[in-house]
Amino acid sequence: MATTTTRSPAATGTTTAPRTPRRRDDSRLALLFILPALIGFLVFMVWPTLRGIYLSFTRFNLLTPPEFNGMDNYVRMVQDPVFWNSLKVTIWYVFLNILFQTILALIIAVMMQRLTKRTWLRGIVLTPYLVSNVVAAMIFLWVLDFQLGIGNKLLEVIGVERIAFFSSEAWVIPTIAGVNVWRHVGYTALLIFAGLQTIPETVYEAGRIDGAGEPRMFRSITVPLLRPILGLVLIITVVGSFQVFDTVAIATRGGPVDSSRVLQYYIYDVAFGRFQFGYASAMSVALLIVLMIITFLQYRLTRASTSDLN
């Protein structure tokens, strides 16, 4: 973990190596270094994306060759109430997940920076992230089980009625969002923490001299200067949040009824459960477009590419 909180930008500026006068053409070497990643990118990202777009215009069951069927899949998608419901459920999930995760992560990150310098304490924050999604889902499934879960036993002890966390239509999405907040909040906090490191200590010093308290400095210094990083973190977490899958696949399989049938799970079910790869591809393309629009908007709204530090 980084412990360079107090280093000023001036200090780092002087350590850059002097430039060689004659510029060599490094592009061949650069290409060689990029190659392994590029092959992966082409084989596992670009090619499947293009093929997915092509398949979205076909009827394809994976075992017989695809048949071109024009816009049929897209027409069906527009008319499919389950698709629209899954989109609604996904957005509700993303909203809850991102809202709580970002607020909590921001609080944790600021506390990590301003209140403690202990590495082990900072390390602990990240531990839930080391647990795999599947394991986290399994554990919470047991903890929050209606009959046998220790979570519900505790609720009973403090005199609250048991809650059917994973098996009631109202609770299931907040519960899944909560499980994933638990797992990802440390990681998000770490990203924000890294952003906090870039804010020069001198600004805080100036604030302190002017008599500002911690809450005031948080409002007037930390949040505005953190904006580019926060913008980036939001883009990463929102895109990731839209792709929620494993927690649903393990804990609820889309139920009760359709109340946790998020888009990714619906796509998976249509593709691998019902062998309708054409329609599943069409929905994946729709998700791709939604994500592109959201990312673009976020990028513009948070002005993530510019900084207020200069």
Partner: peptide, 21 residues
């Protein structure tokens, strides 16, 4: 009820009888 036996991961009749539910 649906909520009691836990939806997608419901326990079977064998476990329900064994645990006395």
């Amino acid at each position: 009820t649906y909520a009691e036996i836990g939806g997608a991961n419901s326990i079977g009749t064998d476990k329900q009888i064994q645990s006395g539910i």
